[in-house]
Design a protein around this nucleic acid. Structure first.
Lengths: 135, 135
DNA sequence: CTCTGTGCAAAGCGTTTGCAAACGA
DNA sequence: TCGTTTGCAAACGCTTTGCACAGAG
């Protein structure tokens, strides 16, 4: 169980009830988009504003508390920052899974091939999950 | 040199001067975003509309004449469809290079790990190019 | 008490849509 | 000629902004 208040303080963010709930929701829904987050947050704070959600996502991205996952043709989703990993998305049911695929060798190959010095990489697979394949 | 008219016909697209110029521009600018494409197109067709650019990009994506590259925090760029490959982007000067990195082993690993059947993958590296590193 | 965050409404930006006229085959 | 494309303007959806008030430290 994540200590949300400690995490906010660690990232130098003022602790507000809205923020605590946002981070709690993110920790219980591994990948969530802005609208889903707003809808869930609304259950606890019926007066909450979408602007608050956006402002908080942006500041948490800047503080590296969150990371953003861009999925082709879908809304961006957000997850609590953790070790680098890749994602696989089901195009039918939108399920998203983390994958522990090591991209470090690829990264070296990419640096060699391009002459760039590379900071970040993003790897995402799109397809159909096991249960959608069956049906 | 690409035969643009033949390519349009092959993809069952009506040949119009605007389309010919759009595909020609795409073939001479490997990675280009909507605004850049519009600006270049405007040089030949001062009456052209942004809507025409969008409509054509969308239909060419659907016909698999083009593919879209999503770069974190930047505008999408478009390229003429070719064999699957990955990209590296310089965050300072926005240069984009194609990389011939083989993701097929990764794809198998991803299928195994997730139980998904995977159709497409996207791999993008962000960093700094050689000349921006020097300066 | 001071500074930051929240909620609201409006603005901003990129993209899509509907329609009439122009054009391709 | 008939069906498609173009250009225009309006609409749309998502995100950001400015401001006054409320809340955190």
């Amino acid at each position: 169980m994540l200590n949300v208040v400690a995490l906010l303080k660690e990232k130098s963010l003022t602790v507000t009830p809205q923020r605590v709930e946002i981070v709690t929701l993110l920790s219980t829904h591994q990948h969530i988009n802005v609208d889903e987050l707003y809808a869930l947050l609304y259950a606890s704070f019926p007066s909450v504003s979408l602007a608050t959600v956006y402002k908080n996502i942006n500041i948490m991205l800047k503080k590296l508390l969150l990371s953003e996952v861009q999925i082709p043709n879908k809304k961006n989703v957000y997850e609590i920052m953790k070790a680098e990993h890749s994602h696989v998305v089901c195009l039918e049911c939108n399920e998203i899974l983390d994958l522990t695929i090591n991209t470090s060798e690829l990264l070296e190959a990419a640096e060699l091939q391009s002459g760039f010095s590379i900071d970040t990489s993003s790897l995402i697979f799109c397809g159909t999950c096991a249960s959608c394949t069956k049906s």
